[in-house]
Nucleic acid binder design. Structure first.
Lengths: 226, 226
DNA sequence: AACATAAGGATCGTTGAACAACTCGACAAG
DNA sequence: CTTGTCGAGTTGTTCAACGATCCTTATGTT
């Protein structure tokens, strides 16, 4: 019995997790990352609270939540807007990725720590065969999330989660997802092999170049019509 | 005219920055880090909103803000509590510090980047001469904050700010601040000299040992009566 | 005595309405 | 073309109310 019960404890976080404000935040978060709400757009308290059938107060709590995740921007007396990232923001996001992901790949790993990463990579490869580039993007994100989890730090995991959510704001305005996501599947494969064979310094160097390239592509595809 | 107006833009952030909820959050944050509210204590919506003269709704917005900073813990239908850190939390905080501060000291620096760090260190040394150990603690925090700023990343700065606020929750329950803070002034001095002479790998190694020691002391002073 | 159950009180969660404060565009005056 | 003024529309904040939930205490059962 004890094992089964212990397993249940993992679900406890999901239990406490059900205030209306949080569920509203979940909905809005999804809508933002799927591009339904586009960066720069203003979110009206009145129309959204009415549409979702919650009070303005509750909606405002949800707005605060997403504001702290940097998905929304709160301008006093003017309302909340879907965050619009500048080129400087993109640069900063990649600065942070280099620090956090770099620390992850430099660690000594046990083989079983790599299974999660392998799984995400396999998903990406399967999605690529299906020409499902949105799916590739999602799986790639999982790949990097799993990479960070090698640090074994809940706080770094959380930071990475937020960072990737912000990055999705940029992906949302990109017009050619294939050109962006496709090449990285292969690179992820190579990175994983370096990790598996324990060549961490090589892996770190490879990751740095990898992130440089991604940042450059993103900035290029982003800035001209920013 | 254009130059003078351009200068003003820097003040724009200060303009939007004053909703009641945020000011309430500022007050509560101060109260928590000064130990007026102690970890584990429940913060009643009714009594606090009454005491501060704001409505429950506004206070709840402030609670949400501090919850996201991990200073408060929100339990559904039970209220908010001042966060109580476990030994595992302390370990995680130091895990993150190793990653973020480690990345900072490994960078190549220009001498003028060190002036902020030097200033914080000088403050700590002066406070130590005055036997002002609270002051030493504050200056030490500024030292590490300045260290992280070498990364040049606003997001990492912000993450470090939050992390140190969490750590203050632990400092607040410590009974002998001198024993904890005093030895680190000297270590900070040594670390700065290593940085100044450009020996970054040596500095990184020194920092690692430094953080190990701090974590150990903190865990020891903390766990027995946790 | 140990345990399960039920009732009651306190507090939180959420709502709806109200009004003040503020933004922004339009239009008039200089 | 710039500066004042006005008004519509939106956000900021408060208040009162009620249902939902938790905690404690009292009650009853085995």
């Amino acid at each position: 019995m004890n094992d089964a019960v212990a397993d249940l404890e993992r679900d406890r976080t999901r239990l406490g997790r059900s205030s209306t404000a949080e569920r509203v935040a979940d909905i809005l978060r999804d809508r933002i990352s799927e591009g339904f709400f586009t960066p720069g757009q203003r979110l009206s308290e009145e129309s959204i609270s009415e549409a979702l059938g919650v009070s303005r107060n509750t909606l405002r709590e949800a707005f605060r939540l997403l504001g702290h995740e940097r998905l929304l921007e709160h301008r006093l007396n003017r309302g909340v807007f879907v965050r619009m990232l500048s080129a400087e923001d993109v640069a900063d996001l990649y600065r942070v990725r280099r620090v956090i992901e770099g620390a992850a790949v430099r660690r000594a790993l046990t083989p079983d720590q790599l299974t999660l990463i392998e799984a995400a990579l396999a998903d990406a490869e399967r999605a690529a065969e299906r020409d499902d580039w949105q799916g590739v993007g999602t799986a790639n994100i999982r790949f990097h999330q799993a990479l960070v989890s090698l640090n074994g730090s809940p706080r770094l995991d959380e930071a990475m989660r937020q960072l990737l959510a912000e990055l999705r704001l940029v992906f949302a305005v990109m017009r050619n997802p294939r050109a962006f996501h496709e090449p990285f599947v292969e690179r992820n494969r190579r990175l994983l092999e370096l990790l598996r064979s324990g060549r961490s310094e090589e892996a770190a160097a490879y990751l740095d170049g990898y992130l440089d390239e991604a940042e450059k592509q993103l900035t290029r595809a982003y800035e001209p019509n920013g």
